[in-house]
Nucleic acid binder design. Structure first.
Lengths: 185, 185
DNA sequence: ACCTGAACACCGTTCAAGT
DNA sequence: ACCTGAACACCGTTCAAGT
């Protein structure tokens, strides 16, 4: 059973799914792979790099259409659903985004899409605003879910309302970026 | 030297300032207070609750004017500067915000300000969008600073540009919230 | 009421030594 | 080349026992 980087990441995703980010340790991961903890370090440099690799994996789901979306609304929704596909996905990706933002194409793509109709600097700022919103919104939703799971908080929030709030935020940022950019041009 | 909650929080802020969030452990905190680790647990329930208390402390700086700002732009800038006043401040507050959002008046106030001119649900969504942006933007800036400090990354980012990006985001969100809300009314 | 001592059940990471 | 064994230097938290 050859232990390689790909196997490690796959096992990490399973732990994330079953136990969340708090339950993901290098030692548990090694145990899951029937291997000594030190063995992991032959294939990956550190836990931080493992999390970056996990983030890349989370964001590597095929887009709903055949191609990657060139529409910002689509890209934002696609990013959201990718984050929601794994427990604590937003926290994992936020961590990776803080460490190595350029290694996450699903996020750098937002900047590229804005760059088609905005000057470079503004495209970057617009993409960052949208990124912060999406990561924060999904992280809040998933953290809430964790609190419910741990029965620290009783009431689960209505999925419809959460989605409506997400769309409100995306629409506001897109409309606002358009206005501010126009105002500066 | 009476050890109470207030002393513990104060010492925690010092550790944050000197060693960052990664350097803040209950054991180090206890050592700094010349006390056994277990002693802390008489005064605070857990490390999570310590972080919530630290977040409250970070956000309890006197506003520049005599009163708390009722203008959203002011409130956003004031929040940003409070977060920047302590190393890793945004990460600490983000954690507390995830755990107990209602315990952070500096953030719930944003919702109240929006509520003066928007229906309740939209005020909440608008406040959350702005909150996610501010927390994300400052976290990104501070994490970058940590990477520079650890010389993982060489170039410090220009403070002026970062501020301009922050203002771009705030203006975009405010303008966009106004437009989307008007559109729905 | 408040704190210590000591333990419990963990961590991430390194590295000689084995195969 | 790849992995084990064993250690190093830590964690958060609990709780009997002391004062």
């Amino acid at each position: 059973v050859a232990l390689d980087r790909h196997h490690i990441v796959a096992a990490g995703l399973v732990i994330l799914r079953d136990h969340g980010l708090a339950g993901l340790s290098m030692r548990r991961l090694a145990a899951e792979l029937n291997v000594a903890p030190g063995a992991l370090y032959w294939h990956i440099a550190s836990k931080q790099q493992l999390l970056v690799a996990l983030a890349e994996a989370i964001l590597t789901v095929p887009a709903p259409g055949a191609e990657e979306p060139s529409d910002i609304r689509l890209a934002a929704h696609w990013l959201r659903s990718a984050l929601l596909s794994v427990r604590d996905g937003a926290d994992v990706v936020s961590f990776a985004y803080a460490l190595e933002p350029e290694r996450l194409p699903a996020i750098t793509r937002l900047r590229d899409i804005f760059a088609a109709r905005l000057p470079e600097q503004q495209a970057e700022w617009a993409a960052q605003a949208l990124t912060h919103f999406v990561l924060g919104a999904v992280a809040k939703q998933q953290n809430q879910a964790e609190l419910v799971r741990a029965s620290i908080v009783p009431n689960a929030v209505d999925e419809q309302t959460v989605l409506a709030g997400f769309e409100f935020g995306v629409e506001a940022i897109l409309a606002g970026v358009g206005r501010v950019a126009r105002h500066r041009a």
